[in-house]
Design a protein around this nucleic acid. Structure first.
Lengths: 228, 228
DNA sequence: AGAATGCTTCGGTTACGATCGAAGTATGAA
DNA sequence: TTCATACTTCGATCGTAACCGAAGCATTCT
């Protein structure tokens, strides 16, 4: 009858539209203030405040006060994964919010998923890394090969130092737009920051989309070719 | 602002305690009638009926009428994965339902997870298969080796025929009690049914727990040893 | 045929929670 | 100090949905 952990609590937590919108906004990875989240949820500040405290006591959010602002973030990567997996599920059921805004194509092309690259470009990058033998893939599992380690070193990424972190190096993440895997984990994060440092890509404010400069896109496509 | 798929709908669907309990009951894998589910949810039949129709239109359940009964099942494996992953998340946050009933230890030891073996025994089985070189594991990805294929043949499982199914052969599934991976996919299912055919194990009515006979447990432990 | 079982639909009650206005606290700026 | 911003808490309203009793179908049993 009543077995196991209590799903209903977190379900209800995510089940409110305003809260769901706020969580989705935070999937962008950057910390947001209460007022920004209120806007994202489409509600007043007071209401947002109560929602945020609920989400925090529910363990989904952490807050960090800085000056007179209160910055909220997803509690950890597990939360981000849960939200993203629910998005994938919702998308597969056709629970889509039809709003073919101008941002939509940009989001499908390249967007941020917590701290790594998702969308068309994210999928292409992982496919290319696997095809070139830099990453071994068995099902959902990923591992960097010796070749990959040296290739990545050339781009400017030290895999060795990433390995020492407690966080898994590679992890495949299924996103809702492509429904195919892209690269998450500390390596996924490192690659994206690498692109941004080089000026190839930058994040758009108020959105999860990532735009590449013309030159950046050229370099990216050259670096991660698709054979077929 | 409003990007991507609508999480809130399925969140709300799962967010109701009665519905959550019914879904959890269905994670057991067997099809249940409306009255059984009403009992599982702790509500009357009428209320259960409306809940069930909501879950069905939401795409979480499928019903199959047979005679004067209506059997409900989780719509597909993706739903089962979602529920189980939410259970894992809830457990990690301490959202546990404290009810130290007598069944609890049995559930941790061996229970069913949709259609395969989970709990202590499920984890042990996968660990042993990996250690013996029957299964290759990279991160979350699993693949049967040639050695594994012949070993499994000896037990009475034809991997070749399983491969032809559309469903993935191996998949790792993280369960809430152990927080470690166990074997899902068509192979996971085949192994469990193999044990049950041999009389090693059987399912308890009204519960997700799987109990091994003394002899069955002896055989199981011998077949899947742990070295350390 | 009639009776029993399994389930759905209808109607009305009730309770909870989402919402906002208004007032209260904390931090920073003038 | 005073004023402004960022946020929380209080209080009250309101809507929705969960719930059950009762009645309505459908299927099977006798």
């Amino acid at each position: 009858m009543k077995e196991g952990p209590d799903i209903a609590q977190i379900g209800a937590l995510i089940g409110d539209p305003a809260r769901a919108n706020m969580l989705a906004a935070l999937t962008g990875g950057r910390a947001l203030t209460a007022t920004e989240l209120a806007a994202a949820g489409g509600i007043t500040l007071q209401t947002a405040s109560t929602h945020l405290s609920k989400l925090e006591t529910g363990g989904l959010l952490t807050q960090r006060k800085q000056g007179r602002h209160r910055y909220f973030t997803l509690a950890d990567e597990a939360v981000a994964r849960l939200i993203e997996s629910m998005m994938g599920f919702a998308a597969s059921r056709g629970h889509l919010r039809h709003q073919p805004g101008p941002k939509d194509p940009a989001l499908r092309k390249a967007r941020i998923c917590y701290d790594h690259l998702a969308g068309d470009f994210g999928v292409r990058m992982l496919d290319s890394l696997v095809a070139s033998g830099s990453i071994d893939a068995i099902g959902d599992g990923l591992a960097v090969t010796a070749k990959g380690e040296s290739d990545l070193q050339c781009i400017g990424i030290d895999v060795g130092s990433l390995k020492s972190s407690r966080r898994p190096l590679c992890r495949s993440c299924l996103d809702w737009s492509e429904r195919r895997a892209h690269l998450a984990g500390s390596l996924g994060k490192a690659l994206l920051s690498n692109f941004m440092e080089k000026g190839w890509a930058r994040r758009m404010p108020e959105s999860r989309s990532v735009v590449f400069s013309p030159e950046g896109e050229r370099q990216f496509l050259k670096l991660f070719p698709l054979e077929n």
